[in-house]
Simulated assay, not measured.
Amino acid sequence: MGEGAVVPSDPEEHVVSERLPPIMGAQRRARDVVADACLRWNLAHLVAPAALIVSELVANAAEHAHTFMTLEVAHRGSHLYLAVRDGTSTPPVQREPPPDMVVPGGRGLLLVETTATTWGWDLQSGGKIVWATLVLDS
């Protein structure tokens, strides 16, 4: 894992987090972090959907929040929890995709909604967390 990654010492905790800069290139690092975590936890079948979800969450934070963000990936019970915390309290807005589907952008949260088991967002002190879950058993 890269610098800034935090892996807990308790192997039962199954949490990985990493601070990311507010740039579009952060998506690649987020996908790598998620893939590494899924493979370490024997969840190879979740690499693709989890990578898609974090890529969209990180892209949204970079584009709209313009603040450093923290990616968290956690193995919690029967779910994989994916979250991005940024430094703005502005809620995420799920837009309807353009009818012609030619205009780029605007489909990030729609992709998250269709891929994730559940998703949502919560206000936090100094910002918000946008999160999604995937069921471990496919």
Rank of each mutant, 00 (worst) to 15 (best):
R76A: 08
V102F: 15
A59E: 15
G4L: 15
A35Q: 10
Q94N: 09
V135L: 09
H75D: 13
A74K: 03
P8L: 15
E18Q: 13
E63F: 14
L43Q: 12
A61V: 06
L109F: 15
L71C: 00
E13N: 12
S78C: 07
D32Y: 13
V34G: 04
G126W: 14
P97K: 01
E113W: 03
C38E: 11
A5N: 04
G25S: 07
D10L: 08
A65G: 08
E113Q: 12
V84R: 00
Q94D: 08
A5Y: 07
G2Q: 12
G127D: 02
L20N: 02
R107W: 12
I129N: 12
G108F: 00
T70F: 01
A30H: 05
A37M: 02
T133I: 03
E18A: 07
N60K: 05
L46T: 00
G77D: 14
V6L: 15
D100C: 10
A74I: 03
T114D: 04
T67P: 09
D32F: 15
L52C: 08
H45V: 07
V58T: 12
H75E: 09
D122M: 11
E3N: 12
T117L: 11
E12G: 13
E96H: 13
R85L: 03
G126P: 09
S138G: 07
R76C: 05
R29M: 10
A30V: 09
V16E: 00
V6A: 14
R76M: 06
V47E: 06
R40K: 13
V135C: 04
